[in-house]
Design a protein around this nucleic acid. Structure first.
Length: 486
RNA sequence: GGCCCUAUGGUCAAGUGGUUAAGACAUCGCCCUUUCACGGCGGUAACCCGAGUUCGAACCUCGGUAGGGUCACCA
């Protein structure tokens, strides 16, 4: 591996579904690596056994695959920097913590929890008072030998300002006086999350650390660890959060915030990925609909926003609709088929015909069943539907219209779009009515629905002759009996 | 509370000292039309506030205000 190869990583925790905010972080790390001809690494951070969820690791694999994010190294793809699963790395941190003590960047601390708790200021803010920071070496040795419980703490240097240049936020600097001597190695011998992160990132040769802004202000602290080890600091790119609204972050508890749920609702993976890429990043030319390849080429750090953005499902719906409309009819048919079948059930309808009706009419695939509900729902309906002022149709006109259309269609054998249309138009003309009036009434007579995905002709073709006539006769009866009652 | 960060229409956002302050979503209206949709056209709507610097500030500086983040032997 050459020194200047870009290496980024995505380090999710297997604690459930893949959250949209998380996925975006991974996506940016991926885009940055690909844009720079670098390598993208997947590391599983599974040390939180409490929150661990069964099957969540597989979910990570499946989500990345569906999203089109491929990694060069990971648990199932060794690149020589493994293991890539954090629980399998537990043995390595203690020695690094001890090494840091020797280098003067950390120290043993024997303070017990009670003492630590007494340090609180009453408002929940704790700051360690560095009680063990200057313990004589002999005392430390003695207490260690005696088997006293201890942790290893970072020894934050006095009187320095730790600063770095963030790739999106610019210069970030924090005074060492504001940095606590945090725990690196816990009394159980395991590392704290952030220490493990520093060690892993270094050992895996990560050159660019890409993560959420929650680490923005603590990064100077971790840089001090790199310094104390004499390691080269990585570059950092911090990403602002995706919000549910102005003040709340999108959280796992906000039900629909995960990838899997959106897929279930009928969103296309590429549309989701495209949309979240746009939340917090804007390409130079302002393009919105982009393929992964186009995003890789256009990705640039200064297009990344400094402020949080609110997730807007309405816009993602629109984008998804754009993807759907741009598909070939064959491909649309393939992706829509399951939903169409769901609506059709056992009935015998032309699925291709239905698909073509749906393609321009839905933004997400999940909308299909309700749009096709008229296929299997035809009962009593409100005759007020026949009233259309602009069309100059009322129930009386509708009755005549449906009657002429029905009579004409009874005799028609060749049931195609053209012939049905021709037949109805001719019938309208002979009856001295406008074709629009007949069409309107016929559409309602066929479906009993105020809105349908297509007009009278399309509905008739979809329903086919016998069902169409059955429905029209039935509607005719309804119209007639209503007429008699008046 | 300390420290760090942020602030352009309802939402995503372009904009880096001089602009009629883009574009997209949403919304409203019109056209097309046998309902819906697609498509086309148009409208409403924004620089958080206050001081500076400057001939000139959305843009630079400072101060407010608001919001977010962070201050664990959680990750």
């Amino acid at each position: 591996m050459t020194d200047n190869t870009v290496r980024t990583r995505f380090a999710p925790s297997p604690t459930g579904f893949m959250h949209i905010g998380n996925l975006r972080t991974g996506l940016y790390a991926y885009l940055f690596a690909r844009k720079n001809g670098g390598r993208f690494i997947l590391r599983i951070e599974d040390t939180d056994q409490e929150r661990k969820v069964e099957g969540a690791v597989d979910m990570i694999y499946r989500t990345l695959a569906a999203a089109g994010i491929d990694y060069d190294e990971g648990p199932d793809k060794d690149g020589g920097y493994g293991p890539y699963v954090q629980t399998q790395r537990m043995g390595i941190y203690k020695q690094y913590a001890e090494e840091l003590v020797e280098r003067g960047g950390a120290y043993y601390c024997f303070c017990d929890k009670e003492r630590l708790a007494s340090l609180g200021d009453g408002t929940g803010v704790h700051t360690y008072d560095r009680h063990c920071r200057n313990l004589p070496k002999e005392e430390v040795q003695r207490r260690l030998a005696a088997g006293e419980s201890y942790v290893i703490r970072q020894k934050v240097p006095d009187g320095v300002v730790s600063e770095y240049e963030d790739m999106v936020f610019g210069k970030i600097s924090v005074d060492s006086a504001d940095i606590e001597d945090g725990v690196l190695l816990k009394s159980d011998g395991l590392p704290t999350y952030n220490f493990a992160n520093v060690v892993d990132d270094h050992l895996m040769g990560i050159t660019h650390v890409i993560r959420g802004t929650e680490y923005l202000s603590s990064t100077p602290k971790y840089n001090l660890i790199y310094d104390a080890f004499g390691w080269q600091r990585p570059k950092y790119m911090h990403l602002p959060p995706i919000m549910k609204d102005a003040t709340r972050k999108l959280s796992k508890r906000f039900g629909d915030a995960n990838f899997e749920d959106f897929i279930a609702k009928g969103y296309l993976p590429e549309a989701i990925v495209n949309y979240i890429a746009l939340l917090g990043w804007c390409p130079k030319d302002n393009r919105e609909k982009m393929t992964m390849q186009e995003m890789i080429e256009a990705f640039d750090t200064d297009g990344i926003s400094h402020s949080s953005s609110i997730f807007d499902e309405a816009k993602m719906r629109w984008l998804n609709g754009e993807y759907l409309k741009a598909m070939s009819s064959e491909r649309f048919y393939d992706v829509a088929l399951p939903r169409i079948k769901q609506a059709v059930g056992e009935a015998d309808y032309d699925l291709k015909e239905l698909a073509s009706l749906m393609q321009t009419r839905v933004d997400v695939l999940g909308d299909i069943p309700e749009k096709l509900a008229f296929l299997n729902e035809f009962g009593d309906y409100d005759l007020a539907m026949y009233e259309h002022k602009k069309m100059k149709v009322d129930r009386e006109v509708a009755l005549r219209a449906v009657r002429v259309a029905t009579d004409a269609l009874e005799a028609l054998d060749d049931w195609t779009e053209d012939s049905v249309k021709q037949c109805v138009c001719l019938a309208a003309e002979n009856a001295g009515m406008k074709s629009g009036q007949v069409m309107f009434a016929m559409r309602v007579a066929l479906t009993g629905a105020p809105v349908t995905p297509g007009g009278a002709i399309e509905m008739a073709v979809v329903l086919k002759k016998s069902e169409s006539l059955r429905r029209m006769r039935r509607s005719l009866q309804m119209l007639e009996s209503a007429q008699q009652q008046v």
